[in-house]
Amino acid sequence: ATNIVGKVKWYNSTKNFGFIEQDNGGKDVFVHKSAVDAAGLHSLEEGQDVIFDLEEKQGKAYAVNLRIK
């Protein structure tokens, strides 16, 4: 899925991951530091509006192509 809109539920910059809540009511999506770095960001803030693509690997969904809304 592409261009999914959501809000950062939480992001832990020490542990380098967090979760994004989808605006469409879907399951929360894992986001890793690598996606944050690829977006040219240092971190994510709770409540921040983002747009992302959804990829699945080994049955787990995660956010890629992250951008600030």
Rank of each mutant, 00 (worst) to 15 (best):
10 W>A: 03
42 H>R: 09
20 I>G: 00
12 N>Y: 10
53 D>F: 03
5 V>R: 14
28 D>Q: 06
24 N>K: 13
32 H>C: 03
50 V>E: 00
17 F>S: 03
61 A>K: 09
50 V>P: 00
66 L>P: 02
23 D>F: 10
23 D>I: 13
27 K>W: 11
23 D>P: 12
55 E>K: 09
8 V>I: 14
33 K>T: 05
26 G>T: 14
50 V>T: 05
42 H>E: 11
48 Q>C: 05
60 K>C: 04
39 A>W: 03
32 H>F: 05
40 G>P: 02
30 F>A: 02
31 V>R: 00
2 T>P: 15
9 K>M: 04
12 N>M: 09
4 I>A: 09
12 N>C: 06
48 Q>M: 09
67 R>M: 12
68 I>E: 10
37 D>G: 13
61 A>E: 10
62 Y>M: 07
10 W>R: 05
57 K>N: 15
31 V>W: 02
14 T>K: 14
57 K>C: 05
68 I>Q: 14
9 K>N: 02
54 L>H: 08
35 A>G: 04
24 N>G: 13
64 V>A: 09
36 V>Y: 03
26 G>R: 15
16 N>Q: 08
15 K>F: 07
42 H>T: 14
38 A>E: 11
12 N>G: 04
40 G>M: 10
5 V>K: 10
12 N>S: 09
69 K>A: 03
19 F>K: 03
44 L>V: 05
29 V>E: 01
32 H>D: 05
63 A>N: 00
35 A>T: 11
57 K>G: 14
47 G>A: 15
7 K>W: 08
50 V>L: 14
31 V>G: 00
52 F>H: 02
49 D>F: 10
6 G>A: 04
55 E>N: 13
31 V>N: 00
27 K>M: 07
45 E>L: 13
68 I>P: 09
42 H>K: 12
58 Q>C: 05
54 L>M: 13
60 K>N: 10
10 W>V: 05
63 A>K: 00
51 I>H: 08
15 K>H: 07
44 L>F: 14
31 V>P: 00
7 K>T: 06
36 V>I: 11
29 V>S: 05
33 K>L: 05
64 V>Q: 08
5 V>H: 15
44 L>Q: 01
67 R>E: 07
57 K>R: 12
46 E>H: 15
8 V>L: 04
22 Q>H: 13
45 E>G: 14
49 D>Q: 14
38 A>D: 08
30 F>V: 03
8 V>S: 01
21 E>Q: 11
42 H>P: 13
61 A>I: 14
32 H>Y: 07
2 T>W: 09
24 N>P: 11
3 N>V: 04
5 V>Y: 14
6 G>N: 01
52 F>M: 04
26 G>K: 11
62 Y>L: 10
69 K>M: 05
68 I>M: 10
39 A>G: 09
9 K>W: 02
7 K>I: 06
45 E>P: 15
6 G>E: 00
39 A>K: 05
11 Y>T: 02
12 N>K: 07
3 N>M: 06
65 N>Q: 07
29 V>F: 06
66 L>V: 09
2 T>S: 09
34 S>P: 03
34 S>L: 15
18 G>T: 01
40 G>V: 04
1 A>L: 13
22 Q>K: 13
23 D>H: 10
3 N>T: 05
20 I>M: 04
7 K>H: 10
31 V>L: 11
4 I>P: 02
36 V>H: 02
32 H>I: 03
8 V>K: 00
38 A>K: 14
68 I>A: 14
37 D>M: 07
42 H>V: 15
61 A>H: 12
21 E>V: 08
6 G>L: 01
17 F>Y: 08
62 Y>E: 08
56 E>N: 09
63 A>M: 02
16 N>V: 03
4 I>L: 09
10 W>M: 12
55 E>P: 02
55 E>D: 11
67 R>A: 06
6 G>Y: 01
26 G>S: 11
48 Q>K: 14
64 V>S: 09
14 T>Q: 10
3 N>R: 05
67 R>K: 10
49 D>E: 07
55 E>S: 15
41 L>F: 15
59 G>K: 13
31 V>Y: 05
64 V>R: 09
17 F>C: 03
34 S>E: 11
36 V>P: 01
41 L>G: 09
66 L>Y: 00
59 G>L: 08
29 V>N: 02
24 N>H: 13
7 K>P: 02
9 K>Q: 03
13 S>H: 07
67 R>I: 10
28 D>A: 10
7 K>V: 06
34 S>V: 14
52 F>W: 02
35 A>V: 09
18 G>Y: 02
12 N>D: 08
14 T>P: 13
23 D>N: 09
56 E>Y: 14
51 I>V: 10
2 T>V: 15
64 V>E: 15
53 D>S: 04
44 L>M: 06
10 W>H: 05
34 S>K: 12
43 S>P: 12
31 V>T: 04
36 V>A: 05
17 F>W: 07
27 K>Y: 15
55 E>L: 12
56 E>T: 11
66 L>D: 00
47 G>P: 02
58 Q>K: 12
40 G>E: 11
11 Y>M: 03
52 F>S: 01
62 Y>T: 08
49 D>M: 09
45 E>M: 13
3 N>S: 06
57 K>E: 07
50 V>R: 00
50 V>W: 02
23 D>L: 11
20 I>A: 01
62 Y>A: 11
22 Q>L: 14
36 V>C: 04
22 Q>P: 09
9 K>D: 01
2 T>G: 07
5 V>A: 11
20 I>D: 00
26 G>M: 12
50 V>A: 05
24 N>R: 07
11 Y>Q: 01
52 F>P: 00
60 K>T: 09
23 D>Y: 12
29 V>I: 10
47 G>I: 03
9 K>L: 13
38 A>C: 04
38 A>V: 08
62 Y>K: 07
48 Q>V: 09
40 G>W: 05
54 L>Y: 15
40 G>S: 10
63 A>P: 01
5 V>T: 07
37 D>H: 10
50 V>F: 05
53 D>T: 05
37 D>I: 15
25 G>D: 12
11 Y>W: 09
57 K>D: 13
8 V>R: 00
16 N>D: 05
63 A>W: 00
57 K>Y: 09
1 A>D: 12
29 V>P: 01
59 G>W: 10
64 V>G: 06
18 G>N: 01
32 H>W: 04
1 A>S: 09
35 A>S: 15
59 G>S: 13
1 A>M: 08
28 D>T: 05
55 E>Y: 14
34 S>C: 04
25 G>L: 09
32 H>M: 05
59 G>Q: 12
8 V>H: 00
56 E>C: 04
31 V>D: 00
30 F>W: 05
29 V>D: 01
54 L>E: 06
51 I>G: 04
48 Q>W: 12
7 K>L: 05
8 V>Y: 01
17 F>L: 03
17 F>H: 11
47 G>K: 15
48 Q>L: 09
11 Y>G: 01
69 K>Q: 04
31 V>M: 06
32 H>L: 04
51 I>D: 03
44 L>G: 01
5 V>D: 08
40 G>A: 15
9 K>C: 03
13 S>M: 10
4 I>Q: 09
60 K>A: 11
7 K>G: 02
11 Y>S: 01
47 G>T: 05
14 T>I: 14
68 I>K: 12
